[in-house]
Structure formats: structure tokens, C-alpha cells
């Protein structure tokens, strides 16, 4: 479904990604783990066109994303829940959800009803400004907004960041639930333990290179991963 090959990204003289390759197959949850500054967020941002690649290819569902206008990528049914949620703080919860369906408003009401059913909290707060929500609610809203575009695949960047352990559990439950509905997930996480435990496969990113890749369950037992990312 998603195939990234030899992707390179520079920020000025700094090489943020130095030729990474990864694939995500239809229906999978794939994790990208690694330390701060390894290039995880850059990878996701480059896939959806928010950063420009200097070399390599990104093919999603047969489309070359490097030559696709960033604002057209959502039309291909690829959604991105960015790091730090990036909800629209001065719009209401409902308006935020509507923005999720901006590219394809054909079934806004029906999709929104489903999302309200899954996130009753958002329904309760639908007239409230999104900026006044708690961190956990904002994360639910960010996920809900991505679902509004009825995507085939979602890129999720640090969904557990800044959340209490209880909410972290809930957000990972949601990710699995979304995946069971047939949506493919590429997940970037600091919380490697949780990410690996729900993923099919995983990649470890270190300063712009992929160093380890494989079955997520196997990575949980890998000595290098244990030492560096699981604190064991």
C-alpha cells in the first residue's frame, strides 16, 4: 500500500533522512520507533508532502506522492494525524470534524455520526472550541478528524504524547480498532513497548537510517531494541 524507497531529506546542510526504505502492506500496523531527532516525524511529514524530499520515491496505492500536490494527498485516502495534534483551536469540535471532510464532503453527516458514536465525549463537546479541550480529548479529535476523510491509511505521529497512562491505553485500543475496520496504520512512537505490542511489523530509525526491521514480536525480544528502546 505504501512503499518508500531511498528517501533523503535535507534541512539545509543537515541530512535528516539518509536514504530510508520502508513498506507498509494493506491492513497492517507498522511502527517506526527511535530516539528523539532520529527522523521519525520527518519521515511522516515527507510522505504527506509537508517536507520536501531531495531524493527517493514514495508510492502510495500506485500514486507517486513526491509529484502529488500536498493538498491533494488526502484525496488519495491517506490521512495524517500530526505530532502535537494540530487541531484548529479556534474552531468548534464539530467544525474541526467538518474540516476533516473538506476534501470529500459527500457523506459528512453519516461519517460524523459514526465518529460521535465511537467518541461520545466529542459529541458532548461538539459546540465547544477545540482549544479548550483536554490533551486526551484533543487527541481523540485529531483521530476523529482524520477518520472524517474516510482514509485507507493513517499516519499517526506520537499519539500517546503527553497523555496519562489510562489515556495511552485507550488511544492504543482505538488504533487497533481502527485497524480492524481495515485501515492501514503507520505509527510513529516514543513509547516503543506499546507500539511494538500492537504492531505487525516495525522499523527502528537511528539518525536518518533504518537500522533494524522485522516482525514486531521479534523486535520486542531483540537485545539491541530491548537495551536502547525498552529500558531493559
Amino acid at each position: 500500500m505504501l512503499e518508500v524507497k531511498d528517501l533523503k531529506v535535507n534541512y539545509g546542510a543537515v541530512q535528516a533522512l539518509d536514504g530510508i526504505s520502508l513498506t507498509v502492506k494493506d491492513g497492517e500496523i507498522v511502527s517506526l520507533i527511535g530516539a528523539n531527532g532520529a527522523g521519525k516525524t520527518t519521515t511522516l511529514r515527507t510522505i504527506t508532502g509537508l517536507e520536501k524530499a531531495s531524493a527517493g520515491s514514495i508510492i502510495f496505492d500506485g500514486h507517486d506522492l513526491r509529484t502529488t500536490e500536498p493538498c491533494k494527498i488526502v484525496n488519495l485516502k491517506l490521512a495524517h494525524v500530526p505530532e502535537g495534534r494540530h487541531i484548529f483551536p479556534e474552531m468548534t469540535v464539530e467544525e474541526n470534524l467538518e474540516m476533516g471532510a473538506y476534501a470529500d464532503p459527500s457523506d459528512t453527516a453519516g461519517t460524523m455520526a459514526k465518529i460521535y458514536e465511537r467518541f461520545p465525549r466529542l459529541r458532548e463537546r461538539r459546540r465547544q472550541l477545540a482549544g479548550t479541550l483536554s490533551g486526551g480529548e484533543q487527541q481523540m479529535l485529531a483521530v476523529g478528524r482524520a477518520l472524517m476523510s474516510r482514509p485507507k491509511m493513517i499516519l499517526m505521529d506520537e499519539p500517546s504524547m503527553g497523555l496519562s497512562p489510562l489515556l495511552v491505553q485507550e488511544i492504543f485500543d482505538i488504533i487497533q480498532e481502527v485497524n480492524r475496520q481495515g485501515i492501514t496504520i503507520l505509527l510513529v512512537e516514543q513509547n516503543a513497548q506499546m507500539a511494538l505490542s500492537i504492531s505487525h511489523r516495525a522499523y527502528v530509525l537511528e539518525t536518518g537510517h533504518i537500522t533494524i526491521e522485522g516482525d514486531a514480536k521479534a523486535l520486542l525480544k531483540d537485545e539491541r531494541v530491548k537495551k536502547a528502546y525498552l529500558g531493559q
Binding site: 494540530h86 479556534e90 474552531m91 476533516g100 473538506y102
Partner: peptide
């Protein structure tokens, strides 16, 4: 209204 609040998020929503 969305664009000045968050340009990146606006692009991700499909706003040119």
C-alpha cells in the same frame, strides 16, 4: 478561518 490557525493541518485536510 482554518488556514491562519494551522497551515500544515489545513494542507492535510486538502485545503490549497
Amino acid at each position: 478561518r482554518a488556514v491562519p490557525q494551522d497551515r500544515d493541518a489545513s494542507t492535510l485536510m486538502g485545503i490549497n
